[in-house]
């Protein structure tokens, strides 16, 4: 179980409550148990946590539980010590970009202003302050000059930024992002993660994706969600540790990727304040298939999607 040193919280939040405290969360649609005893703790800002898993693994359900859109069958979800519904002011949500109707008659600025809905309240118009905040957020993500464009006229990467700006407009302490890589090419992804690395100084970021290869290089903590949750720390654990810890080759696949990224991440790692504490729950069972050392090398060569699927099988 991955220990993660419990460092002092450097967050600016006066409240000492953990940003995210999910305890033994279970959820089912009818008879179908989608989430089982999922635990996740994020103590403070400064980390990007990647949750990946196959389609139908419960990622979206988990996000919806965090957002308070779904009520867990058992277990508890606390954000900043509050019920998710009451903590929405501190949470920025970036949905999957692909679900929108991009023909909708709305411009970028209006989209970003939606982020102020939670603070402005019913019946009132957006105030001058709301517009100022929206301007700040658009400048932060670098698309202020596109503010008057209709949302469908942006490129995939710019749209993504518009929705990040909308989430930032809520002034969040926690950023939840669903499938951040959808529709982005490698360059745009690199841009996106550069931005997220900047943002994580002020907030905790949780990414949810089925594409482990793509998020893997950029997250500080990694969890696999397939009904149960299972944690990995992509940086601090060495391969032997991993083997000892999990004793399965899927992690070798991850390690092989880790070693690959270690050099480029080492600088970041040296300075990163590890104050996100992830705990794996004892019920989490690892039912990965065993592979030989040889297959590791094969894994290294095969596509990241395959690895992702393998990990979760």
């Amino acid at each position: 179980m991955n220990n993660a040193v419990d460092l002092s919280v450097i967050s600016s939040k006066p409240d000492s409550a953990a940003f995210v405290d999910v305890c033994n969360l279970s959820f089912s649609y009818g008879d179908d148990l989608v989430l089982e005893n999922v635990c996740l703790t994020v103590e403070g800002s400064g980390k990007i946590i990647g949750i990946f898993g196959p389609n139908g693994g419960g990622k979206t359900t988990f996000l919806k539980c965090l957002l308070g859109l779904l009520k867990p069958v058992s277990g508890s979800v606390r954000l900043f010590g509050l019920e998710p519904k009451n903590a929405r002011k501190y949470v920025g949500y970036i949905p999957q970009v692909s679900k929108f109707d991009f023909d909708f008659p709305i411009n970028v600025l209006q989209v970003v202003l939606m982020g102020r809905l939670s603070s402005t309240g019913l019946f009132k118009r957006y105030s001058k302050k709301d517009y100022e905040i929206a301007e700040d957020c658009l400048k932060k993500v670098g698309i202020w000059d596109l503010r008057d464009r209709q949302i469908g006229q942006l490129s995939g990467g710019q749209r993504q930024r518009a929705f990040i700006a909308r989430a930032l407009a809520t002034k969040p302490k926690l950023l939840l992002m669903d499938e951040p890589n959808t529709g982005l090419d490698a360059f745009m992804q690199a841009d996106l993660y550069k931005l997220l690395k900047e943002l994580k100084k002020e907030m905790a970021i949780i990414l949810v994706s089925h594409d482990m290869g793509a998020i893997f290089h950029h997250v500080d903590d990694l969890a696999c969600l397939r009904r149960t949750i299972h944690f990995h720390d992509p940086k601090t654990l060495s391969r032997p540790d991993f083997l000892k810890e999990f004793g399965c080759s899927v992690d070798q696949a991850i390690i092989s990727l880790t070693n690959h990224t270690e050099i480029q991440n080492s600088h970041v790692h040296a300075h990163s304040h590890s104050n996100a504490h992830v705990q794996s729950n004892s019920n989490a069972h690892v039912n990965f298939n065993s592979h030989s050392e040889n297959s590791k090398n094969q894994n290294q060569e095969c596509s990241c999607e395959t690895i992702c699927e393998e990990v979760c099988k």
Binding site: L69, R88, I106, M114, L117, S118
Partner: peptide
């Protein structure tokens, strides 16, 4: 907001 993104409207607490 409702017409553009109903889910986000709910997430915003409306």
């Amino acid at each position: 907001a409702l017409c553009f993104d109903e889910e986000y409207t709910e997430v915003s607490g409306l």
